[in-house]
């Protein structure tokens, strides 16, 4: 391609803060977050929507950010794992720690974001439904059981608080 590529202005709220950048339309949201905004907590895996590593919340709902173009996020709200940052561990992070819900940690940001959305949705889930809800994120270390334990305990904890914990 010899022609120059026109950029598109993307104005998006990420973890509560406004961010404005001019990007090529082909910029994937995950690369926008990592390279343009320096938020490297969101991981990249397959770049074809299979592994779920790049899961973030788009207007509160979990999506795979490799399957969204950055310009599509214009005017929307993105929540990444960095939103859980704080002096103390977020209750969800604590649940993962207590239940040994991670080993290498590569899938953890995506698991956390998927679980965070589940907590906010606040619908009671049995174990099988929980497994299905988390099926969009692959983990090659844990065998999943301890991740389910962690999320189950987090959901039980947030059930009384309307998912705001």
């Amino acid at each position: 391609m010899t022609e120059t590529i026109e950029t598109v202005r993307v104005s998006v709220k990420v973890n509560g803060e406004e961010a404005v950048r001019d990007v090529e339309p082909r910029r994937q949201l995950v690369d926008f977050l990592r390279h343009d905004l320096g938020l490297t907590g969101t991981h990249v895996g397959c770049e074809q929507g299979v592994c779920g590593m790049c899961t973030v919340l788009f207007d509160g709902e979990p999506i795979k950010s490799c399957l969204m173009l950055a310009p599509q996020a214009d005017g929307h709200e993105i929540t990444t794992v960095e939103s859980l940052n704080g002096e103390e561990l977020h209750p969800l992070q604590r649940a993962f720690k207590e239940h040994h819900g991670l080993q290498c940690g590569y899938c953890t940001p995506a698991m956390l974001m998927t679980a965070l959305a589940l907590g906010r949705r606040g619908v009671p889930l049995d174990r099988e439904q929980l497994e299905e809800e988390l099926a969009g994120v692959l983990c090659r270390c844990t065998g999943y059981q301890k991740i389910y334990d962690a999320v189950e305990s987090y959901l039980a904890e947030t059930a009384g608080s309307g998912g705001t914990a």
């Binding site: 788009f58 979990p62 999506i63 795979k64 399957l67 959305a117 299905e132 988390l134 099926a135 969009g136």
Partner: peptide, 12 residues
């Protein structure tokens, strides 16, 4: 719909 993809895919 429950056979389609996963929660992330179904969001979009």
């Amino acid at each position: 719909v429950r056979y389609v993809g996963d929660r992330q895919v179904r969001t979009r």
